[in-house]
Design a protein around this nucleic acid. Structure first.
Lengths: 224, 224
DNA sequence: TTCAAATCTCACAATTTCTTCACAGAAATT
DNA sequence: AATTTCTGTGAAGAAATTGTGAGATTTGAA
């Protein structure tokens, strides 16, 4: 759950299998795509932490894929040059890739590049991406939420509201404070909106909904 | 030492005395001025961390005073509206006040505003909010109360009533004073309401309920 | 644009808290 | 002892706050 996801984009099944075996052995999660369109779809859907892209692929080649990805996402990208292929380093990096690697490569090489790129991508917050409190854990980057290993799907407001409550677990938060922290300092709406989101949060959390306590006359508290 | 200084500007002595008792009980340092000119002089001299200003004052009213202060200082300011007066929120805040409070107000309200404004002005002070007296301890921020490590659930009025008694432990508090401090200074209800809350407080406290002594003909006292 | 999801608001129901009152009982006063 | 004054307390209902469903509005993606 906490581990980082890597998307492999390569049209050769053997290559994907090989790389996946490297990555899973190191504890990374792996998602695979055999072409550019699948890759774009999977990036949307799974928000990988890193994308490995083979330059030479049918239909949409690596360069084109990077261009597409960069229109919407800022995910780190490493290029893999095809076997024996001439590598145009400058072209790849200019297009927005973060690093490149020429086949054949060995696992140590690959891991070293991956770690470097990932570290560069999240410089000062290796763990602040994750918030944990009681049965909850949130991945702020992926916007994914778990209640005791069960994933729940939250909207933006619900997610942020839960995040604030978790960051201040066991502390009462007034509706005003919550409004300030989630909606912004000078939001003009009614504070009762908080109640509505608390309602749906409790519903989505399910059984354990009672962990969000109402503190009468004050606000809400996440008690864990 | 490190405690924060608050300047009270109000022409009514009673009001200043009342507010001072709130503030000193909370550990703030207090400076008082009865008019705008004195206030300006004291701000120069003592550099308070916060200024409480009554809107209605002879000679220089609150609005004029804020204008003067803002010419040289950026100290946080909270307006107090005069008794029964119509509050022009927009005018006050536009002029540079950071918050406002309408009389009658109670100590908890005042403290909440003060803390919010001070925190906003100086965002690095995790000041603890615990009050202790005898077997009791209260966390005002979390609205949680303990009797000898056992948590008891108090309503707002009960909590504030106990807080006031604790802040003045071993001193007799008349019903009128308690009313003033918990309900606000010119609350219109009957003082016997205090009795009812004392009753439920004693019940919730349990065995040790007798620490709230009745002082016949005068009021109540927390004896610890 | 057009649609669907997300968000916000509102009204009313449900719940909790607060206040008042009346009367019983205790303490002081005569 | 009788009387007066004050306090304890249970209960009713007033008031305040929260829960919630439904519909309006906004946002975001295709």
């Amino acid at each position: 759950m906490n581990r980082q996801k890597i998307l492999i984009v390569d049209d050769e099944l053997n290559m994907r299998t090989l790389i996946r075996s490297f990555l899973t052995a190191e504890g990374y999660g792996v998602v695979e795509a055999s072409n550019g369109l699948d890759a774009l779809r999977l990036i949307e859907k799974t928000s990988p932490d890193l994308v490995l892209i083979d330059v030479m692929m049918p239909f949409m080649d690596g360069y084109a894929l990077v261009e597409e990805i960069r229109k919407t996402m800022d995910v780190p990208i490493i290029f893999l040059s095809a076997k024996g292929e001439e590598w145009d380093k400058v072209k790849g990096l200019k297009l927005g890739a973060d690093d490149y690697l020429s086949k054949p490569f060995n696992s140590a090489e690959l891991m070293a590049r991956i770690e470097t790129v990932l570290r560069r991508a999240n410089p000062a917050q290796p763990k602040s991406q994750w918030i944990k409190a009681g049965p909850f854990s949130l991945d702020q980057r992926n916007h994914s939420a778990y209640v005791a290993d069960r994933e729940i799907l939250l909207t933006m407001k619900e997610f942020q509201l839960l995040a604030v409550l978790m960051q201040h677990k066991n502390n009462v938060m007034s509706r005003g404070t919550l409004m300030e922290m989630v909606w912004g300092m000078d939001y003009g709406g009614t504070e009762r909106t908080v109640d509505t989101h608390i309602k749906t949060l409790r519903m989505k959390i399910g059984e354990k909904g009672t962990v969000i306590k109402t503190v009468w006359g004050i606000g809400y508290k996440l008690e864990v």
